[in-house]
């Protein structure tokens, strides 16, 4: 396997909006073996409180071996991380989980909501890296303009079309990302869409149902509470649908079997 525990140095800190932060670490081993959709577990305290590591999607990696996470400060652990300064050292384990498998056939559409935007920048870059011209659409959603403005700039640097929505209408479409999908995708010549989605559970559920209706491939990045991140505690369970055996329970573990799942395999 290729999982590492590293003491990584913070090389850059950014505040992108109210409560939204981006941290860049030098974590060569992890950055080199990562793929989009994978995550890292960070120790988000000096001592024992909070006790457990916190999981974050990998937002970007660079050739130089830096790794970025994008997060919202919502509790003790993320507040601790938001106060880190350049030069501080942080204990990281990763890369973890399966990551996205980029389908080579058909067009690609990335749907990210809130902090679910985090893995989408990395994924978009990897898709663009493939040498042939790709049909790539990016649909992003956030609560308001402040949350998304800087991120939109990062995506537009890639030179692909980005469409966005905000809950309060302060920027882009006033409403949900899910309302944008069908108008954009069904008007396009491309028939076989691959949808990659990360965001709040209700959003992913809605995206999954739109994809099901249109027979589009759909992958989602799931979130649960995690203790270990490496398949040892069996705590990060979600319920899947076992289409072969039609079992009522088919527990899957987000850290090992995911975090990326086929939307059709999940019991929503």
């Amino acid at each position: 396997m290729n999982t590492f525990q590293t003491n990584a140095t913070v090389v850059k800190t950014e505040q992108l909006g109210p409560q939204i932060y981006r941290l860049t670490f030098s974590a060569y081993d992890i950055a080199k073996s990562a793929k989009p959709g994978q995550f890292v577990m960070l120790k988000a305290s000096q001592g024992l409180d909070p006790l457990l590591r916190r999981p974050f999607s990998i937002h970007q990696v660079t050739e130089q071996g830096t790794l970025q996470i994008l997060f919202k400060a919502i509790g003790k652990g993320t507040q601790y991380l938001s106060a880190l300064k350049v030069g501080d050292v942080i204990d990281i384990v990763g890369p973890l989980g399966n990551g996205f498998d980029i389908n080579t056939a058909g067009g690609h559409c990335l749907v990210g909501g809130g902090m679910g935007i985090a893995p989408m920048l990395y994924l978009a870059k990897e898709i663009i890296k493939g040498n042939k011209p790709v049909d790539l659409k990016i649909i992003l959603g956030a609560q308001n303009k402040d949350e998304i403005a800087q991120l939109l700039l990062n995506f537009s640097e890639l030179g692909v079309e980005v469409i966005h929505a905000t809950d309060d209408g302060s920027s882009g479409h006033h409403g949900f990302v899910t309302e944008l999908m069908e108008p954009i995708l069904t008007n396009n010549n491309e028939k076989d869409w691959n949808i990659y989605c990360c965001g709040p559970h209700p959003m992913m559920k809605q995206v999954a149902s739109i994809c099901d209706k249109n027979s589009w491939n759909c992958w989602v990045s799931m979130e649960t509470m995690m203790a270990c991140g490496i398949g040892a505690c069996l705590g990060c369970t979600i319920q899947g649908i076992n289409t072969i055996q039609k079992q009522s329970q088919n527990y899957m573990h987000v850290c090992k079997d995911g975090p990326i799942f086929r939307a059709a395999d999940i019991k929503w």
Binding site: D49, L234, C236, T237, Q239, Y251
Partner: peptide
């Protein structure tokens, strides 16, 4: 054994609760 339905774990002050259900 399949174990218990989720959520199975939660962090508490300097500890955690688990109800894995012996999966």
């Amino acid at each position: 054994r399949p174990g218990n339905p989720p959520p199975r774990i939660v962090e508490t002050a300097c500890g955690m609760l688990n109800a894995i259900g012996l999966q």
